[in-house]
Design a protein around this nucleic acid. Sequence first.
DNA 1: AAAAAAG
Length: 492
Amino acid sequence: MNFADLGLSDELLRAVETSGYTQPTAIQAAAIPSVLMMRDLIGIAQTGTGKTASFVLPMIDILAHGRSRARMPRSLILEPTRELAAQVAENFEKYGKNHKLSMALLIGGVQMGDQVKALEKGVDVLIATPGRLMDLFGRGKILLTGCELLVIDEADRMLDMGFIPDIEEICTKLPKNRQTLLFSATMPPPIKKLADRFLSNPKTIEVARPASTNANITQALVPTTTRGKRDVLTTLLGQDEVANAIIFCNRKTTVRDLNKALRQSGFRSGEIHGDMEQPQRIAELDLFKSGAINILVASDVAARGLDIKGVSHVFNYDAPWHPDDYVHRIGRTGRAGATGTAYTLITAEDAENIENIEKLTGQSIPRLEVAPAGRAPRRETGREDTREDRPARPRRGSAARSEAPAAPTEAAAAPVETSTDAPRADRARRDDRAPRPDRDARAPRDERSQRPDRAARPARDDRPRRAPDIDAPDDGGWNGPVPSFLNQKLGA
DNA sequence: AAAAAAG
């Protein structure tokens, strides 16, 4: 199956080709022809499956003909977070460069002026988060009566965030004879109800089992204690294979504290959470994407949908309270066919959450014991034989186990054992992984082995600024410069 | 319990 077989225009195919993609993903192959035939669609797909391009591409062709009128957008895409909205806007820029489509990005945290101006000129594509959209709508800046195509993206997340009433209200303001596309990783009853009410005769496409985790992601639970978390994290971050990482915390305060601590220890880290000003959020994300920092400490604002190429590791510094969040968080790595690793630090109190996670994903996650190892050089811990050629010895979770390991001392700890029967797809592929920004400039091994916790360490600015990148195709990664949040003309 | 989104 080729992009050329999907019925897309030549201009669009050129843009796709320029972006380096030749083969559509499963959801793209299934969705694009249906969308082009103007059918309603329910797409059950996790992020990382190419979901975004599956509606962006056909929309560009559908909107290629016809003209927008003042304050009457021709299409509307709803996203749960500002970052996701910006990411979709990036996709329209990338694939729409051979078309003359106008677009506006309506998100909170930025001035309304430019957004209003763009609306008044008329836009073909409106990409919005619900809050700002409702705000501008209430001010009479938007008429949705000419909006013939609606995309509700990440519907389950919208539900989590309490946006469903807003979505329903918005839906009633659109013309009845519109085309509606709804995407969701899971289909809880309220979403099903929403779909029944606002979609007509939809085609349903499911490309991955809901709530399943990606087989490319090697997972492990790391039992520790609240006090021991930092040492364990530092140890894990010091592993050679950690090119870069997103570290999730449950609280914004934890995000701040941990980032501060990591920076004080010399890590090149940054942070992102919802209490930060939007420009700051953008800046931190951009630093991470460019490789200027290789650790991003994040709240769940970054858990879903964010598509950053080449994230090698995800750490759950706190085990997520909701099992869905686990699936979404670890999905920031192992994207688009690449491999990734996800470590979850767990304490005794997390036992129930972990049980729920394992129930949801239907798999038991292997435990990785990280024991205190003093200042011993890492090579003496037998690191090389910990990951390979080890008989699979799955160890089921138990309350006793979660409490088992002693709190790591102030001294650095070292991973001593993996017990895993999880797929290790990354083993075979380790060698052709992307060049890692840190590798070349890193201290010689002897020196490193004295300081197992410092692999990711040098000061913020004296590292080569190469983006962590992988050459696997993806679903339109947001890897370019961060959108300016200005509304812009496409194809300019 | 927290986070997110309008300010």
